[in-house]
Nucleic acid binder design. Structure first.
Lengths: 116, 116
DNA sequence: AATCCTTATATATAACAATGTTATATAGTG
DNA sequence: CACTATATAACATTGTTATATATAAGGATT
């Protein structure tokens, strides 16, 4: 499902797991948390979010329960499964391993376009 | 073709452009250069490489010419187009903007799993 | 008061586009 | 036979777009 050597695919899934591993949450709130975390860089459309959450639940990375509300629409609260936590950990490790190539890319850019 | 706000998609295209912007090159060699650059982390299958190179040429990011050889198989040499160079630059800028979230992810990991 | 409008909250999904993978094939050189 | 070198069809995954539904709260209109 996720090759051992590919730290770039499933970035959105990574962000989602990062959020719900800290505190279980629901689609609408996850969007806002990611937006905040990334200082506005990642503005995820609702369609993208709910599609991804469903697929992640189908793939066994997340599980959900409904939170009933009187004064607000019900919320589907997601939390990671064991598999989801492992997936997240693997992604972190991949990211850390990729740090050197990321840094070398930035260095190349600075040399080429004049660093600032 | 590539949304303004997505620094994670097309990572392979980014790596390829990084290589051929430095020195025009061909599929087989690009694979080895990327493998070297990433210290063995990115081992790209030939199928993946040639498929991607073709698509990038179709999308106007690369252009190619055949290098004829007597003592070796001919090589299709790729170099970036103007559009390709712009794409690369944009990717670099996205990457740099993403650096803070990448770093914050790693920090989160270290806090969670115990940094080393 | 009752109706209408807008904004914010909250979820859902079909159809599509982009990206990357697998499996397989071909051919030249030492 | 191993290494170099390219090619592509079929597939899987990931992310996007467009659209739909429903509740709640506040203000403006009738």
């Amino acid at each position: 499902m996720c090759s051992e050597k590919d730290p770039q695919r499933g970035w959105l899934q990574f962000l989602i797991l990062r959020v719900v591993c800290e505190t279980p949450s629901y689609g609408y709130e996850i969007i806002k948390k990611i937006e905040e975390m990334s200082h506005g860089r990642h503005t995820i459309k609702t369609g993208t979010m709910y599609t991804t959450l469903r697929r992640m639940e189908n793939n066994g990375l997340l599980s959900s329960i409904w939170e009933k509300n009187q004064d607000a629409p019900d919320k589907r609260i997601y939390e990671p499964t064991t598999k989801g936590e492992e997936f997240l950990k693997k992604w972190f490790e991949n990211l850390i391993e990729s740090k050197s190539i990321i840094d070398s890319m930035i260095e190349f850019y600075n040399n080429k376009y004049g660093g600032r």
